[in-house]
Amino acid sequence: MACTVATALIIVITTLIVTRLLYVLHRTGKPLKPRSSKGSAPQQPLSTLIVLGSGGHTAEIINLLSVLQKDRFTPRFYIAAATDNMSLQKARLLEETSSSQFMQIYRSREVGQSYITSVWTTLIALAHGFWLMLRIRPQVILCNGPGTCVPLCVIAFLFKIVGIRWSSVFYVESIARVQRLSLSGLLLYKLHIADQFFVQWPQLQRKYPRAHYVGCLM
């Protein structure tokens, strides 16, 4: 008897999770409903997480930030890899307001690190990412690789399924990718984690039809 109840319970829970997963996948990539109509209350700003890559990646996303309407994307949170000191400095130059926050995240693997120790560091990086995401719970995530953004986007996806926060994920593939997506880009595209996926060269859009071709950011 207890056995049947347990089985039934497992089936019910699994069905619920799968249904929720399918719903989230169905909703991902669909535009949100228009925010407030003309004349009524002002449009509510959205809390925004900006994941800074490094070097050229950071330069590209800063170009994007310079044309975004800042009052719509407030407050803003910046995350960069703990080993990357330049990117946050560049973001600080862009931000005059004190409402923006700057954070660093542990990297799962440094260049040249052994695979055995990287299991441990990956776990730490994930836990750290989870903690940061719980604190920020962004409504919007802007990222453009490399690897740092992937765990954060996966955690955001889990938050969607559990119902902690619905965040819209935007990924801009780097201008350096002309023929093939980066590993980060490929993962976020194939797993349907990015709501909107942008590429800077037409060749890529032909290979990945769900992507939007937006021309060069640089």
């Binding site: 170009n63 994007l64 975004l68 309407q69 819209s168 942008f198």
Partner: peptide, 19 residues
């Protein structure tokens, strides 16, 4: 001629339901 990010900004805003 340097590109610019305006098309991305437009698509992001529109997706999020901003006018």
């Amino acid at each position: 001629h340097p590109g610019d990010a305006t098309p991305v900004a437009k698509l992001v805003s529109r997706f999020l339901g901003f006018a």
